[in-house]
Amino acid sequence: MSWQDFQIHFRSIYVCRVYPPEMRYSIHGQWRGYSVGDCQDYDTWHQNPQYQLRASDPDASLPIHVFITLTQGVSFSRTTAGFRNYQSSHDSMMFYIGMRILKNRGRRAAYNIYLHESVGGTDYVNSREISCEMVLDPDPKGYTIVPTTIHPGKGAPFVLSVFNKASISLETL
């Protein structure tokens, strides 16, 4: 099919990535109350939930290729077989969400984002899920991931997932 024909018949392309369970590291979180820190334009952005991403031995001295997703408006449950089940919460609104990945020695980010080296992240999108892909330099202290909403006071449950082949840890700060 020619490119011109493709453009006539299709308006978008979706890529589905399927990772084996051993490559998925997930944390269920929520913007609620004090932790609704908003985007970096607000003095409260550092109140957002923050997570340390760190490579474990023997992968700690190598660059790590990560694919990070932030999914909002989901409920989490375990089935009897031990599988994780993420279901959309139909009663929750979708907000503009984004995330920043900081080279912050694996510590919580301070009140001013410009005090930290940003190594990646996303734009703010009104979508159920956003993602970013990057290669992170080796850092024994790790990186800080800060998921945020763009507007003040917008609380919602979310799931932060990191997919990669290396041995990593993903922990709440």
Rank of each mutant, 00 (worst) to 15 (best):
W3P: 07
Q7I: 05
Q7E: 11
H9E: 07
F10P: 09
R11W: 05
S12P: 00
I13T: 14
Y14N: 13
C16K: 15
V18K: 14
Y19P: 02
P21H: 09
E22M: 09
E22W: 12
M23H: 15
Y25R: 15
Y25E: 08
Y25K: 11
Y25M: 10
H28R: 13
H28C: 10
H28Y: 14
G29S: 02
Q30S: 11
G33E: 00
G33H: 06
Y34R: 09
Y34S: 06
Q40R: 08
D41I: 05
D43A: 02
T44L: 01
T44Q: 04
H46F: 06
Q47D: 00
Q47P: 00
P49F: 00
Q50F: 01
Y51Q: 03
R54Y: 06
R54P: 03
A55G: 06
A60F: 12
A60T: 11
S61R: 00
H65A: 13
F67Q: 08
I68H: 10
T69Q: 08
V74H: 05
S77E: 15
F83K: 15
Q87T: 14
M93N: 12
M93Y: 10
M94G: 14
M94K: 15
I97F: 01
G98C: 03
N104K: 06
N104R: 05
R105D: 15
G106H: 04
R108I: 06
A110I: 10
N112E: 09
I113M: 07
L115P: 00
L115K: 15
L115G: 09
H116S: 03
H116N: 05
E117Y: 01
E117H: 08
V119G: 08
D123M: 01
R128Y: 08
R128A: 14
C132G: 12
C132E: 10
E133G: 09
E133F: 00
M134V: 06
M134T: 13
M134H: 06
V135P: 04
L136Y: 05
L136E: 03
D137K: 15
P138Q: 11
P140N: 10
K141S: 14
K141M: 13
G142F: 05
G142M: 06
T144F: 01
I145Q: 08
V146H: 04
T148N: 05
T149W: 02
G153T: 04
K154D: 07
P157G: 08
L160R: 04
L160C: 04
V162E: 06
F163K: 02
F163D: 07
A166H: 12
A166E: 07
A166D: 12
I168M: 04
I168L: 04
I168W: 02
I168A: 02
L170V: 09
L173K: 02
